[in-house]
Amino acid sequence: MRIFVCIKQVPDSAQIRVHPVTNTIMRQGVPTIINPYDLFGLEEALRLRDRFGGEVTVMTMGPPMASDSLRKALTYGADRAVLLTDRFFAGSDTLATSYALANLIQKASENWGQPDIVFCGKQTIDGDTAQVGPGIARRLGLTQLTYVSSIDEIDPSHGTITVRRRADHGVQVLQSRLPAMITMMEGSNEIRRGRIEDALRAASAEVVQWNAAAAGITDLGHCGLRGSPTVVKKVFAPPSREEKATLVGEGAANPAAVANDLITQIFARQPVLEGDLMHAAARH
């Protein structure tokens, strides 16, 4: 099988800080990681390759630094890595991003053959939009299978696939055709620890780097800020509420006294709630 995996290098959101004084994002020193949701697709891709043979190509669009994440993907066992990087892509929204990535996938297909599956992350942890995967699928006419919790059956030679897909009230079992764009649910698998051979290979492997022209993108009007229909007009810190919390129980003798003070305060502010809770408790 030929599988492409789209990944994104994201700041480790746990370590992002807002400057206490200027309220701006402090990016300095924030480590970057592969978007965690992408790893479920990568692992699924590696498993399919191990089962059916073929190769896994990881790709991303981003600054030159993003090659670190691609190299990391190679240490997990991916066979090839491609980075699409160009200043024309700066400021891309999801529509412009899916345009660039769809073109990247086209170009990669010309070089290494058409993929059976393109895996994307369910969403990223920095953007949280969940729009780029569907955008790519739409642009390339791939079957769209999002929120997949497992691939039950797959037959590359006949181009058929059966998956379980997480829906709002249950699980859909879907039968469909390849080529498909799949996003995997978190927890559907666990990224492997690559073998020492993978680590060594990744350390000296070449990450293929393309700029817009090399990826065959000539219409720069679809790229970056110019190609983004959405415009960010304002970025701001959430307004702090005028009033801070009223502190309860200061100087109280023991936890029980604090608890009683607190309950009195709660019901003073929510008088109807007490009766409702009572009824609820009576039903128990």
Binding site: T75, R193, I196, A199, L200, A203
Partner: peptide, 29 residues
Amino acid sequence: TVIYETTVTSLMRDASGWVVGVHTDRNGE
């Protein structure tokens, strides 16, 4: 060549005790 997230678990020695390499916590040789 630099590899990360790899812990050297022990030294590889030949019969005479001479150190000839390392073993790591990754699968493989």
